[in-house]
Structures are given as structure tokens and as C-alpha cells.
Amino acid sequence: MVCALGIEGSANKIGVGIIRDGEVLANVRRTYVTPPGEGFLPKETAAHHRDFIHQLIKQALKESQLQPKDLDVICYTKGPGMAPPLLIGAIVARTLSLLWEIPLLGVNHCIGHIEMGRLITGAVNPIVLYVSGGNTQVIAYSNKRYRIFGETIDIAVGNCLDRFARIIKLSNDPSPGYNIEQLAKCGKNYIKLPYVVKGMDVSFSGILSHIEDLADPSKRRNKRKKAEITVEEPEYTKEDLCYSLQETIFAMLVEITERAMAHCESNEVLIVGGVGCNERLQEMMRIMCEERGGKLFAIDERYCIDNGLMIAHAGAEMFRSGTRMSFEDSFVTQRYRTDEVLVTWRDD
């Protein structure tokens, strides 16, 4: 029996979760919300995490009705992510580990997402689409590693959505992506956007610059072109832009997932990561799966969006399979690829 406490703070969420043998005992989270038109910066995000981490840990312990002595391992996010917020989680985890004399374990953030998704949905060996603010990857397990078959060659899908939300000044509460999703529901007209798929890889930066120009032609970066245009350009509504952006980029994601399914001869898909709780993306993926006799596994925002529980769960699996970490190795790293982790807890 492994009982683990996990701390996640790689981006603008700070979360604490407690899990005991796959049973969720606590999962609490705070999000650092910036004003419309602004993104979250490392320093301010770290300050936010510093302010809330103590009360979150107390709250998690209270909800789980456990004492520190009941815990077997303290887990924290080792990377990838922004360094200052990551450090808050690591420092608190180290302190707790020394204070309570409990082993410490650093967890790869992406692995946390995958293992959480597998636990909640019961998917055994799916193709994983991991979509969030910083990551866009199509992953499949083979021979003790989660291998990356496809990914973005420039910015992540969530980054593309967040930045577009900033341009049209959408609220960041609860998240920019959620607000785009709501506006998109009212969109009617499909506006043609670039569609960029390269094998199992995708690219979003060209789409973002294109839609930036559509949303605000006055800021068009190519000034020479602007001078030539004399005719009035059609005005696009925010709703239609959101709708078209979602339709285009989600179609790209579904396409590369399908390509990975055909390449790996797999029939199951699991969507994880913050963008994964978008219902339109889930719907599109479900239709694709049905059209090829496959099955979709998706999870809701409690487990999809960054949370402490996923770090606790992945850490517990590592701990159970014998992984240990010395105190000297309890650093954080901004770059930590999914395929760097040796998956000791899976035998298939």
C-alpha cells in the first residue's frame, strides 16, 4: 500500500493531492488568474504559489483525514515548466520530506498527466494526446518508455489559444481556453485558416499570426501590404473567429492522433492536459474513433487541468516499482522530455 502526497506548480496552477492505492483522498488547487490581455509571468506566478501552498497542504491533509506519518512518499513536479514556480513546489516538498522524515520523489509532469488519465478512465494502452499550454504531443507506450510520435514543431496548442484570447481581450477566469470554447459555441461562420500538418507533427505559429491579422487588421505586421489595401476588409466577429480557430486546430490534432493510431495499430485514445477538457475537442475525437471502431477516453477538468493528484499518483506508481531519489537529486529542470523517463511500473 502506497500513500502519496503530490505537489504540482509548474505553471499558473498550484495544486496538492493525496492518493492511497488509486483511491483519491484529496485534490485541491488554486489558479493564478491574470487580467484580460495579460499572460502569467514567472516571478508573479511564483509569488502566488508561495502565498497559497501552505494552506493548500493543510486543506489536503484535512480532507484526507490523514496525519503526516500516514504518508509513504512526498512527490513534486521536477519539470518541465517555468523554473520559479517549479522551485516553490520543490522547496516545500524537500522541507516536508526532512520535517516528517518521508522519502522524496521528483515526477515528470507529462508522465503525471498520462498516469492520471489511465487511472481515472481505466484505459490500458491508449494513444495519448497530451494537449496543454506548453505541450502538444501524441504519445504511445512501447518498451518501458512513453514515446513521442508526433508533436508541435513550434508553439503548443494551448499557447496558441491563450495568446489569441489575449489579443481579443478575453477574460483569463477561469481560463482563456474555457472562454474561447464558450464564445465558439455562438460562432456560425467558418473562416478559412491555414491548416498545417506535417506527418504526425503540427505547427500553430502561422495560424496564430494569420488570425491575429484577421482579429485586428490595424496591427498587421506587414505594413507594406496594409498600404495597398484600399477596399474595406470584412469585419469578423469574435465568435466566428473563436469557432473557426477551434475547428481548424482541433481538426489538426484529431488528424495526427488518427495517423498515430494507424501507424501504431492502436484502437484507443486518451486525451489529457488542460486543453483536453474542451468538449468540442472531445466530441471531434469521439467521432473520429467511432468512424474507425475505436474508443475514446477523456477526463474532466478536475483531473485534466494540472493538479497535485496526478503528481501523487505517478509518484506512487514509481515508488511502488522501487524508484527512489536521493536528496541531492531533488532539483527542478525546465526541460524534461516525456521519453526521458524509464517507465518502471509497467511490464507490458
Partner: peptide, 27 residues
């Protein structure tokens, strides 16, 4: 997904896609 292009960028991306596919499939 093919196209006709003389530029080095597209050829470079084509090679990158191949490298990634080989590393993940035949690790």
C-alpha cells in the same frame, strides 16, 4: 501530404519528421 517546393526549409522539416518517426517507432 506531399507538395512541390524548392526551399530548404520544407526539405529540412521532411527530414525532421522522418527522424522523429524512426526514433519513436524503432527506438
Amino acid at each position: 501530404l506531399s507538395h512541390y517546393n524548392q526551399g530548404a526549409e520544407d526539405k529540412g522539416v521532411d527530414l525532421y519528421v522522418l527522424e522523429r518517426a524512426l526514433l519513436s517507432t524503432h527506438s
